[in-house]
Computed example of a mutant assay.
Amino acid sequence: MTNSLLTVAIAFSLDGKTLFTSGYEKIVKYWDLETGNCLQTLRPARPDEGMIITEAIGLAEAKVATLKGLEALEVN
């Protein structure tokens, strides 16, 4: 039971059967302590993911590179 990077916060349910973990990657995982299985993974919204920037005007190359790093797309 772990997040992919360093786990920085944990919280047990009141009944002690489940656990929440969170790390620097901003993902929260919900665990079943009896089985060790991850029941749910919660991820933050990523507003730049899938944004098409092909015809964007006035973007510096550095900004385009940053947006691509955030999963924005240039389509031909």
Rank of each mutant, 00 (worst) to 15 (best):
E61Q: 14
G36Y: 03
A56K: 06
K29L: 11
G36L: 04
A56P: 01
A60R: 11
I57A: 11
V28R: 06
E74S: 14
L42Y: 15
G50N: 04
T7Q: 12
L42E: 07
K26N: 14
A45P: 11
E34R: 11
L42V: 14
E55S: 13
E49H: 09
I10W: 04
T66F: 08
A45K: 11
E55K: 09
K68N: 01
K29F: 03
F12S: 10
A60D: 12
F12T: 10
I10L: 15
G69E: 02
W31H: 01
I27E: 08
S22V: 07
R46M: 08
P47C: 04
K68E: 03
L39P: 08
T66G: 08
I27V: 10
K63Y: 06
E55D: 14
T35M: 04
F20W: 05
I53C: 02
V75W: 12
I53W: 00
E74R: 09
T7D: 06
L33V: 05
C38R: 02
I57M: 14
D32Y: 09
G50A: 03
N3Y: 02
T21F: 00
P47Q: 05
I27R: 07
L67Q: 00
K29W: 01
L67E: 00
T7A: 03
R46I: 07
E25W: 05
G58F: 00
I10V: 12
G69V: 01
K17T: 11
C38N: 08
M1T: 10
A11H: 11
R46A: 13
L39W: 08
T21L: 04
L14W: 06
K68M: 04
L6T: 15
L19N: 01
K17W: 07
L59W: 00
M1Y: 03
L5G: 15
E55R: 10
G58V: 05
S4M: 15
N37K: 13
T18A: 09
Q40C: 08
E25R: 04
N37G: 09
A62R: 13
D32F: 13
D48W: 14
F20G: 03
M51K: 02
V28G: 06
V28H: 01
L33I: 09
I27D: 05
G23S: 06
A9V: 13
E49Y: 01
E25L: 04
I57F: 12
T35C: 09
D32A: 12
L67A: 02
T2H: 13
R43H: 13
V75F: 11
T66V: 00
V8L: 12
E61K: 10
Y24R: 07
Y30I: 05
T41M: 12
K29A: 02
A60F: 13
K26M: 09
E34D: 14
L5F: 15
E55P: 00
E49C: 09
L33K: 06
L59Q: 05
E34W: 08
D32I: 08
A11P: 00
C38Q: 06
C38E: 08
T35H: 06
L67K: 00
L19G: 05
L73T: 07
L67I: 01
K68F: 00
